[in-house]
């Protein structure tokens, strides 16, 4: 086979997969609006995805905020701009690091869990059994997870924003001799609603994409334990990649140069 044919086939495969994922995402979202909505499954997903992700998202945020404070201080010293540390730190966290890091943590934790759960149900025929019991697996398994992740990720990101800024505060006040009240005042005067809101919109989009990836690769998995294993792996990699790629696209929409 020549290299052009190979490249062409790869491209076609990628396009086909993108098409299938898009249709899946559309069906998942449509399922919110038609027929029964399974509240119990939705709240279960909300707790599993949101509540249990709090510790890991919090830890990520506080250490990142702390390290960021040191780096910004060191960098801005070179042109005597270290007093702007709180402003730079907060805008970096709220716009970029909070959404992206929280989304990556959730991608690792939750899209893999979704792919494994739904994939196991698929290969053990539990998904088929559900259909024969007159319950649409799309409505029972997919729609609640996608909706829950889309709604809960902005909340997690808001938490990550606050904890991340607090991490920066700890370092600034206890290691870099900033005055606590000044740090907080600088940030509250500087940060605009736009900064926070764009970050939260990003988070919602990331949540949607992460859960679509987890559900899609689980739902379409086949071939026993190995199939579920590779579905899980693909789901994590795919959701991390779409988070990073869509992050750039969204940022370029929000930041008009």
């Amino acid at each position: 086979m020549n290299i052009f044919a190979a490249t062409g086939n790869l491209t076609l495969d990628a396009l086909r997969e993108t098409g299938r994922v898009s249709i899946f995402a559309g069906q998942g979202a449509l399922a919110w609006f038609s027929g029964p909505f399974y509240w119990r499954a939705f709240f279960g997903a909300l707790v599993r995805i949101g509540f249990t992700s709090l510790p890991v998202v919090g830890l990520t945020a506080i250490f990142t905020g702390a390290a960021l404070a040191l780096n910004i201080y060191d960098g801005s010293l070179r042109f005597n701009a270290e007093t702007f540390l709180p402003q730079i730190l907060s805008v970096s966290i709220v716009r970029e690091l909070g959404p992206v890091l929280a989304a990556l943590m959730v991608a690792g934790r939750c899209s893999s869990a979704m792919a494994a759960e739904i994939g196991t149900m698929r290969v053990t025929e539990q998904v088929d059994a559900m259909s024969t019991l007159a319950v649409d697996p799309f409505k029972y398994l997919i729609a609640p997870r996608i909706l829950a992740t889309t709604l809960v990720l902005p909340l997690l990101v808001l938490t990550a924003d606050i904890i991340g800024i607090y991490g920066g505060y700890l370092v600034s006040v206890y290691a870099l001799d900033f005055a606590g009240p000044v740090y907080i005042q600088n940030i509250s005067e500087f940060i605009e609603a736009r900064d926070v809101v764009t970050g939260l919109i990003k988070a919602g989009v990331f949540g949607f994409l992460i859960s679509v990836m987890g559900c899609y690769y689980g739902y379409t998995s086949s071939g026993g334990a190995q199939g579920v294993g590779s579905a899980t792996r693909t789901a994590v990699v795919a959701s991390a990649v779409v988070v990073l790629a869509s992050n750039y696209l969204l940022t370029s929409l929000f930041v008009q140069v």
């Binding site: 029964p36 399974y38 025929e125 539990q126 059994a129 559900m130 024969t132 019991l133």
Partner: peptide, 25 residues
């Protein structure tokens, strides 16, 4: 239908499995 591998929902209790259709459909 009874499936070859039983296909019980392993995250649910037995009675919830049996009552699945009644509860959700």
């Amino acid at each position: 239908m009874l499936f070859q591998g039983s296909a019980l929902f392993d995250s649910l209790r037995i009675w919830e499995n049996v009552a699945f259709r009644l509860l959700h459909a």
